[in-house]
Simulated assay, not measured.
Amino acid sequence: MSVVLITIVTLAGLGAIAAVILYLASKKFQVFEDPRIDQVEEALPATNCGGCGFPGCRAFAEALVKADDISSMNCPVGGADTMSDVAAILGKEAGSAKPQVAVLRCNGSCEHRPKLTDYQGATSCAVAAALYGGETGCSYGCYGCGDCVQSCQFDAMYMDEATGLPVIIEDSCVACGACVEACPKDIIELRNKGPKSRRIFVSCVNHDKGAVAKKACAVACIGCSKCQKVCPYDAITMDNNLAYIDYEKCKLCRKCVEVCPTNSIHELNFPPRKPKVEKETPEQAPAE
């Protein structure tokens, strides 16, 4: 037998043995993957925004399949329709999460919060926050560098040149929470959209005492507690000189808006208020 033939036979034998070993190993260490994961992933919007609390739609799909109860799990982009489709695939019951939207809890525009310094560093809120307290007397407010806008995958935000603040486009916002994570000052919050998209919230996060906060920003919350005292639903709490409105308890009566001396409480998408009609006193009544 020639050397060439022996070499061929040897290599063929080694290849066959290796193939058998690989086959047996693949069977022994085979990882079963539930086919429903692919079905659920197809039902998800494939945005991979992380708003569900998982690093991507694939990871969320895996978690949904493994979970015994998915009622507390939600895809903010797809909303109730998507979760209903997922529930149908898995034979489970979807929750009824209320739609949310991002709100900006800072109204310190250039008009209300004058600059004291001029920042010349990198155009990044994260960098600026690591270096100093801001260009104004309020160290709690928006830096205006637009990290939140850059983080948004849905073109739901833009920077307003006139105010120097980000503007949230309600119809485009999917409440993924990327802007919330990107803001180093924690001035962006996800809140329930509310009936007819009406919301009331304190657009300020300043914890300074009233006089200091008012000096830094004309529309800052001064912690006067007037809103808390007038609220009939215990929806407002005071913590460290700052009022906060619980959107789960708030009934949108707007009484707090009327008594706020600095207009730091915002009301969105409400109809215009009817002008108050003053009652005539006896002295003002026309003589007969």
Rank of each mutant, 00 (worst) to 15 (best):
D160S: 05
I188M: 05
R198M: 04
E189C: 11
S203R: 07
L165S: 13
M157C: 01
S172K: 15
K229M: 03
L165F: 05
P195H: 06
S151D: 07
E189F: 14
A128T: 08
G210Y: 08
C176S: 02
T136S: 14
T123H: 15
P232D: 07
V127N: 02
T163I: 02
V205Y: 03
C217D: 15
A218C: 12
K193T: 12
Q153I: 10
G177A: 02
S124W: 10
G133V: 01
A122E: 15
C145D: 08
C152W: 09
A156S: 13
C179D: 07
C231W: 04
K196R: 06
C179V: 09
I168P: 01
C142L: 11
E189R: 15
C148E: 08
K215H: 15
V127P: 04
D155L: 08
K215T: 15
K185P: 00
Y132H: 11
A130I: 03
D208H: 09
C173E: 14
D155E: 15
G121W: 10
Q153K: 14
C224A: 03
C142I: 10
P184W: 00
A216M: 13
A129P: 01
C221F: 10
S151G: 07
S151H: 02
G137Y: 13
E170Y: 08
D160C: 05
K226Y: 12
C227G: 00
A122G: 05
L131P: 08
M159R: 06
V127K: 04
I188K: 08
G137M: 12
M157A: 01
V212F: 07
R191K: 15
E135F: 09
T136L: 08
V127Q: 06
C183E: 01
H207L: 04
A130M: 05
G144W: 10
V127W: 02
G194R: 11
M159A: 06
N192D: 12
D155T: 11
K193V: 03
S172G: 07
A220T: 10
D160N: 14
G137K: 13
I222G: 05
R198V: 01
A130L: 07
Y132E: 13
P166L: 03
R199I: 09
V180K: 06
R199N: 11
K214C: 11
A182V: 04
I187T: 06
F154N: 13
V202E: 00
G144F: 08
C125M: 00
I169H: 11
A218E: 15
I222N: 07
G223Y: 02
E189S: 14
M157D: 01
D208I: 00
M157L: 15
G121F: 07
D155V: 03
E181I: 04
H207I: 07
V219C: 12
Q150S: 13
M157T: 02
E135P: 08
S197Q: 14
I187C: 09
G223N: 06
N192M: 08
P184D: 03
G177N: 03
M157V: 01
N192C: 04
K185A: 00
Y158K: 13
P184Y: 00
